[in-house]
């Protein structure tokens, strides 16, 4: 455990130096605050100007933000890992008691922890999420996306420049919530290739009044998609490191 403590201490010191690490914490917090404080006046202003009711789409906005939180955290973690790989810092960790395995575990657990905290904060404090803290199944899937995005970058990018280019593709996963909300079935199932589709679909099912077996099925499929992707990306990353 001490070996992780040392790395955590190191990260906390770096957070003061490297503003992006602070942003991993501050960015989602800002999103929550902006939604909580900015959404009602913005909605009123738009209604006054155009007659358009923004709050009618609050479920969609909430979904987008819930999908954005792991994106922010995952992309920042992935870019940090690429930076560390480019500068051969990972090789240095490999010869410490932490070893490469410990490094990977630490780097992937930390974003999960932060993402958990931020997502729960969003659900309880944003004022637009229809979920209660008890309905955490969609959050569980969203939270798994933070290490997924980080691994996607480190598994496919040879360096940080490629990582930046590939981070454009990560932002396209916001199509998952958009398809779940706007596109009719069965066409929206095509978006099932995107991991973000499954928690979004589950969220909408939970928000709907009718109770059915679909929820369990969507969660099971979503969890399988996330775990399979995590396994595949982890394998690719480990192969790349060796």
């Amino acid at each position: 455990m001490n070996k992780y403590k040392a790395l955590l201490y190191c990260d906390m010191r770096n957070a003061a130096r490297d503003p992006m690490l602070l942003l991993i914490l501050a960015g989602p917090l800002l999103l929550v605050l902006t939604t909580r404080l900015g959404m009602p006046p913005l909605s009123n202003w738009i209604a006054d100007k155009t007659g358009y009711d923004l709050l009618a789409y609050k479920a969609f906005i909430s979904l987008l933000i819930q999908a954005l939180i792991p994106q922010l955290i995952g992309a920042a973690t992935g870019l940090l890992m690429l930076d560390e790989r480019d500068e051969r810092i990972i090789d240095c960790y490999a010869v410490t008691p932490l070893r490469k395995r410990g490094y990977i575990v630490y780097r992937l657990i930390l974003p999960v922890g932060i993402c958990c905290g931020m997502s729960l904060l969003f659900v309880s404090a944003s004022g637009i999420s229809g979920l209660t803290v008890g309905q955490t199944l969609p959050l569980l899937l969203f939270v798994l996306e933070a290490p997924l995005f980080a691994l996607f970058l480190v598994a496919f990018a040879a360096n940080k420049v490629e990582g930046l280019a590939l981070s454009k593709l990560i932002s396209l996963t916001l199509l998952g919530p958009a398809c779940a909300y706007f596109v009719a079935e069965p066409w929206q199932w095509l978006a099932g290739l995107l991991p973000t589709y499954w928690p979004s679909k589950l969220y909408l099912e939970l928000a709907a009044a009718d109770n059915g077996w679909q929820r369990q099925a969507i969660f099971a499929i979503g969890l399988s998609v996330h775990l399979l992707l995590l396994y595949d990306l982890l394998r690719r990353f480990v192969n790349r490191m060796e």
């Binding site: 503003p19 992006m20 942003l23 870019l79």
Partner: peptide, 10 residues
């Protein structure tokens, strides 16, 4: 900037 994340913020 000294790191990619620092650069993104800046």
């Amino acid at each position: 900037s000294h790191s990619i994340n620092g650069f993104l913020i800046r």
